[in-house]
Structure formats: C-alpha cells, structure tokens
Simulated assay, not measured.
Amino acid sequence: MSKTVEWIAMQSRLYQRSYSREQQAHTHEFHQLVLPVTGGLQMEIGHRCGDVSSNTLAVVHAGETHAFAADGDNRFVVLDLPVQPLSDELLPDPGFVPFDAGVAHYIACLDHQLKQSATSPALQQQMLTLLLQLIQTTTQPAAPGRNQQRVMKIQQWLQSHFHQTVSLAFLADQVNWSSGQLSRQFKALTGVSPLAYQLELRMNHAAFLLESSAFSIQQVAERVGYQDLSAFSHRFRAHFGCSPSGYRQQRTSESSVSTK
C-alpha cells in the first residue's frame, strides 16, 4: 500500500451530498473530487464545462472557481483533500475525468457504506485509501502518442477558450501542423472537427446557463462567443431543435413539475 496515498487518506474527508437545481458558484481552500452515484451535475470549472454523471468525475483544485447546478434528483460521494505537495502530485488536472466500471462499482459501495449510521475512522481511512489508489490508476494511463498529445492540447485550449472566435489556421499553429493535418488528426481521434468540437462546447454551456442562471438570451449568447443574437439563436435551434427561449421555458417547466 502506498504510504503517500495512505497519508493523504488520513487527512481527507469523505461524505455524501445532493446538489440543488439552482446554480451556485464558489471556491474553497481544499482540493475536491465529485463522484457520481445517481443523477447528474453540470459544472463549470474555470473555463471547462462538463457533466458529472454515469462514468465521469470532477476534479476541482483548491482556489479554482467552479459553478454547478444539478439535473433532477441526485446523489454524489464527495472527497475533500488537503492542499499538500503529496496530494497535489496525486490529483489529475482540474476538469472532468472518465472512469471505468471498476471505479463505478467501488463508488456505489462507498455510497452504501456512508449510509450506515456508524463508520469507524479506521474503516473510512481504508475506504479512502483504496479510492485514491483506484483514481490514481484510472487517471494515469499510458503516455499518449505524439499526435494524440497535440490533439489533446487543442482540446484543452478549446475547453478554456471556447467563447473566443478562432480560426483553424490559428489552432494548427499552436501544434505546428497545417490546417489539413489538424483537421484529419483531430477528427480521427475525436470523431469531429476542431470547430465542431468548439461548437459543442459553446452549445452545452449555453444550455447550462439558460437552465441555471438569470442571464438574458443576449447575455448567454455573448458569454459563449456570439455578439449576434440571431446567429446564436440559429445555431442553438440547429443543435437542440428549439429556440433558446423555448429551451429555457421547457426546462423551467420540467423543474417546476419535478419539485411538486
């Protein structure tokens, strides 16, 4: 058993939590992992947007501003870790990390154990230690090839700058490729083009803001990179099959029904 992981487990806190549909945002002075049990949680960590559900966990580093809103009934296992060099090295980068069926099964076991009225400190430390070891294994895959590293660099840039207007040539310059090389390699590894990937990020974040914030449609459009409201509405309708205002109204109605 890794002494590093065991020491971190002794300093950490593990608990269950359910989140509200109302959007909230904050920072805290500790690292945090949010592990899904049931339901989903839409999050924005820095400029990275994603869903914590099914087989994806969230990693929030200390001091990182993050916003979140739940989608219906939900329950999560949350792990707070101390800010120490050892835990800093263990954690993956802030954002969203996929995990396999083995980790999902263990999260379900943790959830069951945390429901019990009495969990001894020694048992909880053992649970935490194994969880950290599983996450460490899951988030440290074999080193990617050179092409994959370049594609990942573009993905990370787009996740942090999806609201910016950018050309394919600019993105290609970031990894010393031609526009054609970038298009071919990016699509081969992700299934979509770089600009289609950016559009997906924009639309998902727009949907998140429409559902969980009081921003006007124009403000939402601007926050995802559109100054022209008509262009934003056209893109949104093509992506989701309804207008931004229609989407907001539909989601608000669903929320009202579920809370009755």
Rank of each mutant, 00 (worst) to 15 (best):
F232Y: 11
P194L: 08
F215Q: 12
L229S: 12
G191S: 02
N204R: 10
S213R: 06
V220T: 04
A207L: 09
F236P: 07
A231M: 06
V224Q: 07
R202M: 03
D228Q: 04
E200M: 10
G191R: 04
H205K: 11
F236Y: 14
Q219S: 11
Y197K: 04
A238W: 00
F232P: 06
A221M: 05
F215A: 11
D228N: 12
L201P: 00
G191M: 08
Q198A: 10
T190E: 00
Q227P: 00
V192K: 15
L201K: 12
L201A: 09
G225N: 03
A231C: 04
R235K: 12
Y226P: 07
P194K: 07
S213W: 04
S213M: 09
A214R: 15
H234T: 15
N204E: 15
Q227E: 07
A231E: 11
H205P: 02
R223G: 06
R223P: 00
L229G: 15
V224K: 04
H239S: 11
G225D: 02
F215P: 03
A196R: 11
F208Q: 07
P194M: 13
A196Y: 11
Q218K: 14
V224R: 07
V192M: 14
E200H: 13
G225L: 12
Y197L: 00
F236C: 07
H239Q: 13
A221F: 01
A206N: 06
R202K: 09
S216W: 10
A206H: 08
Y226F: 14
F208E: 09
A206F: 07
I217Q: 09
V224I: 15
H234W: 06
Q219M: 08
Q227I: 03
A214W: 11
A214I: 06
M203W: 06
A206E: 05
F236H: 09
L210I: 07
V220E: 08
Q218E: 13
L195A: 03
Q218V: 13
L201T: 06
E222N: 13
V220R: 02
L210R: 06
V192Q: 12
H239L: 10
A231R: 09
S230Q: 14
Q227K: 08
E222W: 12
I217D: 14
F208P: 05
A221L: 01
Q198P: 01
H205R: 14
L201S: 05
I217M: 15
E200Q: 13
L210M: 13
L210V: 12
H234K: 14
